[in-house]
Design a protein around this nucleic acid. Sequence first.
DNA 1: CGGTGACTAGATAGATCGCTCTATTCCCGG
DNA 2: CCGGGAATAGAGCGATCTATCTAGTCACCG
Lengths: 189, 189
Amino acid sequence: MTTGTKDRILETAMELFRRHGYTGTGMKQIVQSASAPFGSLYHHFPGGKEQLGEEVIRRSGAMYGELFAAVAGPIDDVVEGIDVFFRGAADALVASDYEDACPIATVALEVASTNEPLRIATADVFQSWIDGVGAYLRRGGIEEEPARVLAIEILTAMEGAFVLSRALKSPEPMLVAGRNAADRVRDAL
Amino acid sequence: MTTGTKDRILETAMELFRRHGYTGTGMKQIVQSASAPFGSLYHHFPGGKEQLGEEVIRRSGAMYGELFAAVAGPIDDVVEGIDVFFRGAADALVASDYEDACPIATVALEVASTNEPLRIATADVFQSWIDGVGAYLRRGGIEEEPARVLAIEILTAMEGAFVLSRALKSPEPMLVAGRNAADRVRDAL
DNA sequence: CGGTGACTAGATAGATCGCTCTATTCCCGG
DNA sequence: CCGGGAATAGAGCGATCTATCTAGTCACCG
């Protein structure tokens, strides 16, 4: 039961990758921030930075998926559920000075054309999010195919809002995207 | 004379930054791809990588802004103009195997929390795009404030679609985002 | 008690990073 | 022709990158 160090490395790497990106984060920087010995890094991740990156991507994806389920899930009105989730994202952006954004977007763009295993990991995560949001929308009474397409619209709007809100240091894009998304869900009902 | 070395360096850097990001692109890699001598790089860009990055961001922003004006501008029906622009982006993605995407999105996310001068450059570019798209929408008869908000929605949808389409290697997010954007413009008329 | 594998610990290799330096070539007005 | 600034050319600096290596520590089991 000595998974403490590995978990601490993963948590720290998640945070650093989200803020500084994949190529912008060094292995030494990770172990230093995690207060972990360098040797432990390659003991737990013999596949090196790429293995660490892949585990971070998949773990971040699972966590954010669960966050959506926890926030929107209990809200039966799907329009309100989507609206609340976007508002929460906007609040988190402001509260963290625009660092607390999508955990994999930066990495996804960095590796899309340079590292196929990591690109596939990000694709799997996005697909799982599409499935999760789509399932939530079906619970609200939307048919399967419209729900799938609408889920893509919603995630697309949120990812783009992270880009603009972080660059502009303004919550407006996220709030505008949320209104757009909620309207689209309402129209689909 | 002809195409100067400085221009060639800028063009090459634009391409490499777009595909591999800011931290993922080396100075040696740039001069090698540009077939330029290393010394010329620091002659033309005494401010180093940061100055080069800022010039690339602003130049890319201007070029993409002009591209929008060239593609959508001649189309008087703003709904069709927006639709055509998204379809063009989807075609470009497929034709380039998902490399020909937003020229500054990757860099914008990378530097948002790490390099304030570059973050400001990306913010200026996004603001200029909001202004450009907003002006186009006003030409279609939409009032100033709704046009501004709608422009944010459109750009947000497009940026998010670049993220998902590149990761999933599918044009669907871009096509779905385009339909969403066109619908929103139609509703605003 | 001795052994065994998991884990910690960090020095270090080899490559690459951004950048500086000097030397050379080119262009052009005087 | 020549003088001189602009531009080209690339060797090389210190720092840092990812990854490997050996050595030491620890818990647990026969």
